[in-house]
């Protein structure tokens, strides 16, 4: 076999392997989605969004859990995006190559692997025990702890891959460094930053353990952040492991809602990014 033919054959094998990998990933998704859909779709009815969670045997929906999740995820993501993007920017721009930068990056990676339940315990010590009460604030902060390291990591990776020529061009025109970063680098890394945010959100949308010790959960509707708040993951956790069919059904509906929400936000985020890119 000539060398060229060998190389082409090798490449062919590589293509097949990559396709198989994609196929495996997609089939895993299909299998899990199939389970989610077959168990969750049947349970969706008009009451899911209008009624609060019921006791077993009573009719009800998931309204309080949905609203609670939205509020706490929004709070968590707001904190995570602000701190995460700023910290990631520092790591990529001002702190690149410095010793302190190495330390921060390293510890950020360590924080990513923190089991969510331990983060929940820490926030409990910080925001629940001293104030003698569970609250939505504590839940949001716990979620922020989980999302921030992911945002930082991804932001740093994306920003450090932006071409240095962009920065040099901006500064050569007399712009300050902050200006260059905000108006040029961030803009060109927009889709990457969006991915960072979406990954962070995907991580926290399904987290149960940290919320158990911070926001506790609430059987009733509550949009007051200083009181215990319901959330979809904690409700799913309680209902899925119960003995009652109607509660289990609601649990699968809740799980389906989370998956759909993440997909929806993914698509919306990409569409928005594409539009601003064009303009």
């Amino acid at each position: 076999m000539t060398r060229a033919a060998y190389r082409r054959a090798f490449n062919g094998v590589f293509v097949v392997l990559c396709s198989i990998a994609t196929f495996i990933a997609l089939s895993a998704l299909v299998m899990i989605l199939w389970t989610l859909l077959s168990k969750g779709l049947g349970g969706i009815d008009g009451m899911i969004f209008t009624h609060d969670q019921p006791a077993p045997g009573s009719p009800g929906g998931l309204r309080n859990a949905i609203v609670g999740s939205l509020i706490m995820c929004a709070l968590g993501m707001a904190i995570a995006l602000v701190i995460g993007i700023l910290a990631g920017t520092w790591l990529a721009e001002y702190g690149a190559g410095t010793k302190y930068g190495h330390v921060v990056r390293f510890f950020n990676d360590v924080l990513i692997s923190a089991p969510s339940i331990l983060i929940g315990l820490f926030v409990y010590e910080l925001l629940v025990a001293p104030f003698h009460g569970f609250s939505g604030y504590a839940g949001g902060v716990a979620l922020a702890f989980l999302a921030t390291p992911i945002v930082v990591r991804t932001t740093e990776d994306i920003l450090s891959l932006q071409p240095g020529a962009l920065r040099e061009a901006g500064m050569a025109l007399g712009a300050s460094r902050a200006f260059v970063i905000r108006k040029i680098i961030w803009k060109s890394a927009r889709t990457g930053l969006l991915t960072a945010g979406l990954l962070g959100f995907a991580r926290i949308s399904g987290e149960t353990a940290p919320l158990l010790f911070t926001s506790l959960g609430n059987q009733f509707y509550n949009h007051n952040l200083s009181q215990p708040m319901a959330s979809l993951p904690t409700t799913i956790f309680q209902f899925a492991l119960s003995a009652y069919d109607d509660w289990q059904r609601l649990a699968w509906v809740g799980a389906l809602l989370i998956a759909v929400a993440v997909l929806f936000i993914n698509i919306v985020g990409r569409v928005l990014a594409r539009e601003t890119h064009r303009s």
């Binding site: 019921p54 006791a55 009573s58 158990l212 010790f213 506790l216 959960g217 059987q219 009733f220 309680q238």
Partner: peptide
């Protein structure tokens, strides 16, 4: 949960119990 649901309907007081 069942009692709390019925109690709230009757008296308007919400008792939030969570299993931890």
């Amino acid at each position: 949960a069942k009692w709390a649901e019925a109690y709230k309907a009757q008296t308007g007081v919400g008792l939030n119990y969570q299993a931890i």
